[in-house]
Design a protein around this nucleic acid. Sequence first.
DNA 1: GCGGCGATTTGCGCTATCGCAAACTCCGCG
DNA 2: CGCGGAGTTTGCGATAGCGCAAATCGCCGC
Lengths: 242, 242
Amino acid sequence: MFAYKMRGAAGLANLDRSLISALPAFSGLSGADLDFALEGARSFIVRKDAAVFEQDGEAHSFFLLLHGHVRVERLTPDGQKVVARYISEGELIGIAVAMGRDTYPASAVAAVDCTVLSWPNARWAALTARIPALSGNTLKTVGARMEEAQNRVVEMATERVEQRVAHTLLRLLRQTGRKVEDGVEIDFPISRQDIAEMTGTTLFTVSRILSDWEGKGLVKSGRQKITVLQPHRLLVIAEARN
Amino acid sequence: MFAYKMRGAAGLANLDRSLISALPAFSGLSGADLDFALEGARSFIVRKDAAVFEQDGEAHSFFLLLHGHVRVERLTPDGQKVVARYISEGELIGIAVAMGRDTYPASAVAAVDCTVLSWPNARWAALTARIPALSGNTLKTVGARMEEAQNRVVEMATERVEQRVAHTLLRLLRQTGRKVEDGVEIDFPISRQDIAEMTGTTLFTVSRILSDWEGKGLVKSGRQKITVLQPHRLLVIAEARN
DNA sequence: GCGGCGATTTGCGCTATCGCAAACTCCGCG
DNA sequence: CGCGGAGTTTGCGATAGCGCAAATCGCCGC
C-alpha cells in the first residue's frame, strides 16, 4: 500500500535548513532552531497515486510536503470517497499527534510525484517544547483549514452544484493555479471524478457543467486538465444570488 | 446589537479558580497559573437570542462559555443562515486571535441565557507565553472542530437529507443530550428551522421527517423541543447504506 | 381566559440533479 | 502505428427534495 522511496543519501543525511526556513510553520526561527527542527526528519519520494498515510491507520509520523501536490481523501463506511482538500508545497499534513489523535482521520494521496519530509510523532513534543511558536503557527494553519471546511459546509448547504463547482475551481486556482498564455490552469492532473468528489456531485454533472462553460468560452478543459480563461466570469457564476 | 450584562460585583472582582480548573483548555494547571489565567477576565450574562460576538465584527476579545448553550452561525452574502455548531459549557469561542484573524468568522448567539467569560485579545499572547499547554490544548480543540466540520462536509456530500438530520440529531444528543424519563432530549430550545440550517435543507422537509419518525415512535417532538425515544433506531437510519 | 403570533404541519406542483447506458476520444504502450 | 482502457460526453428517464400556500397548533402575556 505505502510506497515510500528514500531519496538516496539524503534520507538520513543532514537536511538543509533552507528546505524549511521560508515556510510559515517555521517562520522566524534561528538557524540553530531550524537545525533542531530537522533532527529526526527523513525525506521521501512518494509516487503519484501512492499514499503518504492512510485513513484510520496508526499515526506514527507527521509530514511536511516539500514538493508536489497531495489530495486528502475521506472514505465513508459504504465506500464513497470525498476529497477534503489539496495540500500545496510547504504545508504540514498528518499532524494527528498535534490534535491528540492516534489514527489519521483521512488518507493523503500524491496527485503527482511528491517529496515529503517526515518526523516520528515523538518529535512533536520536543519540537513544540523548544519552539513555542510552532504550536501557534500550527494553530493558525489548522484554524485556516477549519474555516475552509466551514466554508464548504456553507457552500454545500446553500449553493447549487454549478456554483459549488465554480467556487471549488476558483479555490484550486488560488491555491495552485499556474498562469499560462491564455489563462490560469490547475497545476496537477485532476479529473471530473475528482471535482465531483470535492463538490458532492457526480462526474456526469461536472462534465455537463464544464462542457457548458467551455461552450461559453469560460474555460478550456481536456483530459485531467482544466484551464480557466475568464476567472471573473467564473466568479460571477460562483457568487450568483439564487 | 450586543447585549452583555455584567454580573453584579463579579464583573471585575476576583473570579474563582474553580470556574475553570476542570476545563480541558486549562487542564493540569497549578493554582497560581489558574489565577494568572483569570487576570483580565470578566464575566458576563448574555441573554437568549443576543450575540456574544458577530460575524465580520472586529475581534477584540475571546471567550469561554461558562454556562448555557451558544449557536455559531454563518450568514452568506445573500442572507442565508447556516448553523456551524452548538457550543457547550466549558468551551472556548471566538478565539480569532489564536488563529491570527482580526475579525470573527461567524456570529455566536445565545440559545438560552448564558454566562460567558471574556478576555481582551491582548491577553492571549501573555497566556500562551506563560502557559504553553494552552496552545496545545487549543490546537486539540480546534482540531476536533475541524474534524467535525470535515465530517459534515462528507455527510452533505454523500447522504440524503433524512440521514443528515439523523446524524445531526445524534450529534446534538451526544454533545448536549439530557436523559429524561422516556428517552434523551436536547437540552435547549431548537426549532425545525434551526435543524434545517444545520443540515442544509428546509424547515418543511425537517418537519416532514420528524412527523414521519414520530409516527414510527422514534422521537417525540413539539414546539422547539425534541426527545429521542429510540436512539439506536435513529442510528440505523443515519448509517443506512444508500 | 383570551387573543395573537410564532412554530409547525401538510398538500401539491416543479425542477435540479442523479443514475445509468452507450458511444466517443485520446493517451500511452507495445 | 494500432490497440486497449481510462477518462469523458451526452441522452433519457426517475425522483428527492424544494418552494409556496393555507391551515392548524400551542405558548405567552395581558
